[in-house]
């Protein structure tokens, strides 16, 4: 098989598995989210990125061959201001629905769902919560914000994150960003103590902790 073709089919496979978004598309989108702010045209690009991540999701549940049983129920969710209606089984976890079916790939799973790392944090009805410990069926009519949404809503926070080198491998970063956004929604000018307290449930394997505090202080003008 010619090399080109081989590559393409791998990407298609990936697309099937990840709810319609290939790794390459995701990388581009996430680069826009985390990288573009610093080059000055962040707004436009991240909005496109948000659409890119959110739009295919709608189609993905409609077309996916999910093993739905008679116990599945329809719930409606507002995720990053987009409205979704999805069928969920009683035992489905919110994280899997948001990530695997709706395509919000910023939501991570660093601790296997022990509730011990914060990388799956989303803001639900104003509270930073762990999507890995939440049953999707219990979230009907919830308003949810993920890192994709924060990238649009609070660009200066993302910019401060980039400028302060808050990530090494970057795996924990979306969880931190979402938790920080929840903090700033409640307390626009948090003290260092309040920042440390709020981020207490986010674990970073690479040890970037001190940088997050600098970034949040910078964005609130408390530096």
């Amino acid at each position: 098989m010619p090399r080109e073709e081989k590559k393409k089919s791998a990407e298609e496979n990936e697309k099937d598995r990840s709810g319609g978004i290939s790794r390459r598309e995701f990388t581009i989108a996430s680069m826009a989210i985390f990288g573009a702010a610093s080059v000055g045209e962040g707004k436009a690009i991240t909005q496109v990125a948000n659409k890119k991540l959110a739009q295919p999701g709608i189609a993905s549940q409609a077309t996916a061959k999910l093993p739905l049983t008679s116990s599945a129920r329809k719930i409606s969710l507002t995720v990053n201001k987009w409205k979704y209606e999805v069928y969920v089984e009683p035992e489905w976890i919110l994280r899997d629905v948001l990530r695997d079916q709706l395509g919000f790939l910023s939501i991570k799973d660093m601790c296997n769902g022990y509730g011990a790392c914060g990388s799956c944090t989303v803001i639900m009805d104003g509270r930073p919560v762990l999507s890995c410990m939440t049953f999707a069926a219990e979230c009907d009519s919830a308003t949810i914000e993920t890192a994709e949404g924060v990238a649009v809503d609070m660009q200066d926070l993302i910019e401060a994150y980039v400028m302060n080198h808050c990530m090494q491998c970057g795996y924990c970063t979306p969880g931190f960003v979402v938790t920080a956004k929840a903090l700033l929604d409640r307390i626009p000018k948090p003290t260092e103590g309040e920042i440390r307290d709020a981020l207490g449930g986010n674990i970073c394997r690479c040890g970037t902790y001190t940088q997050h505090i600098l970034a949040i202080k910078e964005v609130t003008g408390n530096a």
Partner: peptide
């Protein structure tokens, strides 16, 4: 108790 996220839930 626990972490902020767990306290929120």
């Amino acid at each position: 108790t626990a972490s902020p996220h767990i306290r929120e839930m």
